[in-house]
């Protein structure tokens, strides 16, 4: 799936709006992982670091908010082995590239358990199976 630049920009307020529902699950606030029952959110940012490791692959991105503030987000994916079989390797994502990820929000902090990752308008795409 390809997204226009405009669409990616639009995705930022979408994730901000979606993340606002997290406090409604306050009785789970001590759980550090992800709210798999919440609506999925979409976040777009610039890659700071790519960790191609097991048990989970991580992409650290900088996301610029509506007021121009920059926040660090941690995108978590499946295992390195599973992504290797999907054609990914340690060079699939490089600092400075743009990544759009969709998935379940972390209970706290800026994190996403990703269901889909798109690098640079489709240079690399991963979808959870």
């Amino acid at each position: 799936m390809r997204m226009s630049v405009l669409a990616r920009i639009a995705a930022v307020p979408i994730f901000l709006a979606a993340s606002a529902v997290v406090p409604a699950q306050a009785h789970h606030s001590s759980v550090p992982w992800y709210d798999l029952n919440a609506d999925q959110i979409t976040v777009t940012g610039v890659v700071r670091e790519f960790q191609f490791i097991n048990p989970h692959v991580y992409i650290i991105i900088d996301v610029t908010g509506a007021e121009g503030q920059v926040e660090e987000w941690r995108l978590e994916s499946t295992s390195r082995n599973r992504m290797m079989r999907a054609g990914w390797n340690e060079d699939s994502v490089k600092p400075g590239q743009t990544v759009t990820a969709t998935g379940f929000p972390a209970w706290k902090g800026n994190g996403v358990d990703t269901e889909e990752i798109i690098v640079d308008d489709g240079a690399m795409v991963w979808k959870r199976q």
Binding site: P32, I53, N54, P55, R80, N81
Partner: peptide
């Protein structure tokens, strides 16, 4: 076409 691959787990820091 698959084999089981070694996992080579990395300790995760949060």
């Amino acid at each position: 076409d698959w084999e089981l691959l070694p996992f080579e787990c990395h300790v995760t820091e949060y």
